[in-house]
């Protein structure tokens, strides 16, 4: 996937753990992990909205486009 969800950086900035975010956003940890590890194929607008609300950021801060071939991450 050339689209990456930049959760790590933002979580570090906000000093928030993944578990905490999961609780706040109301998404299960499993689903959040799917998002974070780049396994997700799609993301609902409601999820994006909840993430932006809790992390106080814009969608552009969360989503990163990396046009490289290796999908190591």
């Amino acid at each position: 996937m050339a689209i990456r969800v930049n959760l790590d950086m933002i979580l570090l900035e906000k000093k928030m753990s993944l578990t905490e975010l999961a609780e706040r956003v109301g998404i299960t940890l499993a689903n959040l992990s799917i998002l974070k590890t780049g396994k997700a194929r799609a993301m609902r607008f409601t999820t994006l909205e909840a993430l932006c609300r809790e992390l106080e950021c814009q969608p552009a801060d969360l989503l990163i486009y990396e046009p490289d071939e290796d999908e190591a991450e």
Binding site: G26, I27, T28, L29, A30, N31, T46, T47
Partner: peptide, 10 residues
Amino acid sequence: MSNPMHINYG
């Protein structure tokens, strides 16, 4: 909420 299916770890 956005997630209709509540998924937890096996």
